[in-house]
């Protein structure tokens, strides 16, 4: 699974990359029409959750999928984003639209501080360190009611006071505005990934992933490029955390910073296809409904069934589809595109 982002410079691939941009545009445009068709609030809510997880998995993928480091600590950035924007809103009256940028910046700083000493760690060592960092942040927040005058409220979590329909407060009574907001975020994240793939940053990351020492010998500074990508990924994850906080108007450390959210993000990206633009979106689109179906169908009669399915899907992907579920789709696509070219 180290190589599935390998550079592919065949002519078809170049053609495909064009097609991929088209696919992206078609998907986003198609999604933009969904609220016109779907008026049922629950269905819309479910689709918002799918898009939210797709956005989170895409943010995760930005660094982890391309550098090949498995972070199981990204929930920490999600939590930082949520906490900063909510606290700035409740304490300073700052609009969450601005607050989330501050949350994102703080997450970036945190990411660089954590990343500098840990990027050198290989494979499982990096993963274990990230789990440890995220757990430290979570345990600390859970046990801190008040930090330097800031009411973190510990494990109780933070409540966003209700302001009714107010754009600047990032609060809406209907679901449609939230839908378009998360769709915009997702589109931006996908565009950022697509852009990065073709940018110098992307090439350097791929080189680092392939062979870190060789990349260094060629003058690529691995720490610098991984830090940039890691910071970018942390920033985007934190923005997602702010969205979560505004959408549910409640956050607590257990959910927003817990290991489970980190696993969810990683598993969705990996099953969909890490190191690809559309993989994480596909992963979220497959796995989120599985969880909901399992809940709805058995109503808790078979506890934890959806997680068993996640587990099997993860194992099957690692063993048989190391490039993720997107890979077979891409092959079919390539065939069609290739056939068309001839």
């Amino acid at each position: 699974m180290n190589r599935f982002a390998a550079l592919d410079k065949t002519p078809q691939a170049r053609g495909l990359r064009l097609t991929q941009t088209h696919v992206l545009l078609v998907i986003v445009a198609g999604l933009a029409f969904v609220p016109l068709v779907v008026t049922d609030s629950f269905t819309l809510h479910s689709i918002i959750m799918i898009l939210f997880f797709a956005y989170m998995a895409t943010s995760w993928n930005l660094v982890c999928g391309y550098v090949g480091q498995l972070s199981l600590g990204h929930a920490m950035f999600n939590g930082v984003g949520g906490y900063v924007s909510v606290l700035m809103f409740t304490q300073l009256g700052l609009s969450p639209w601005l607050g989330m940028l501050f949350g994102g910046l703080l997450a970036m700083v945190l990411a660089v501080l954590i990343g500098l000493p840990t990027f050198r760690l290989k494979g499982p060592y990096f993963t274990l360190t990230m789990i440890a960092f995220a757990e430290i942040v979570r345990i600390w927040v859970e046990n801190t009611n008040d930090f330097a005058g800031i009411p973190l409220k510990g494990a109780e979590g933070l409540i966003v006071p209700n302001r009714g329909d107010d754009f600047w407060a990032f609060q809406f009574s209907g679901k449609v505005p939230y839908y378009y907001i998360i769709l915009t975020f997702l589109a931006l994240a996908l565009a950022a990934t697509a852009w990065m793939e073709r940018s110098k940053l992307g090439f350097c990351l791929k080189a680092i992933r392939g062979d870190r020492d060789a990349a260094e010998a060629l003058g690529v500074n691995p720490t610098r490029y991984t830090s940039i990508a890691f910071a970018l990924s942390a920033f985007m994850t934190a923005i997602g955390g702010s969205f979560y906080a505004q959408f549910f108007r409640y956050i607590n450390p257990e959910r927003s910073m817990g290991l489970e959210l980190s696993i969810d993000m990683a598993v969705m990206a990996i099953i969909g296809g890490q190191g690809t633009v559309l993989g994480p979106l596909l992963g979220a689109a497959i796995l989120t409904p599985i969880a909901e179906l399992a809940r709805g169908a058995f109503g808790g009669g078979l506890l934890g069934l959806h997680l068993v399915v996640y587990g099997f899907a993860l194992m099957a992907c690692v063993l048989y589809f190391p490039k993720g579920a997107i890979d077979p789709l891409r092959k079919i696509f390539r065939k069609i595109a290739g056939g068309g070219a001839k």
């Binding site: 699974m1 180290n2 090949g68 498995l70 290989k122 494979g123 499982p124 993963t127 696993i263 598993v267 990996i270 078979l302 506890l303 934890g304 069934l305 997680l307 068993v308 996640y310 587990g311 099997f312 899907a313 993860l314 194992m315 690692v318 063993l319 190391p322």
Partner: peptide, 21 residues
């Protein structure tokens, strides 16, 4: 070793939740 970690993470999800079921 990352693939192996993911694989055993899958085993973890399956075992813990099968036990719950």
């Amino acid at each position: 070793p990352l693939s192996a970690l993911l694989l055993t993470a899958g085993v973890f999800l399956v075992m813990d939740n099968m036990a719950l079921m």
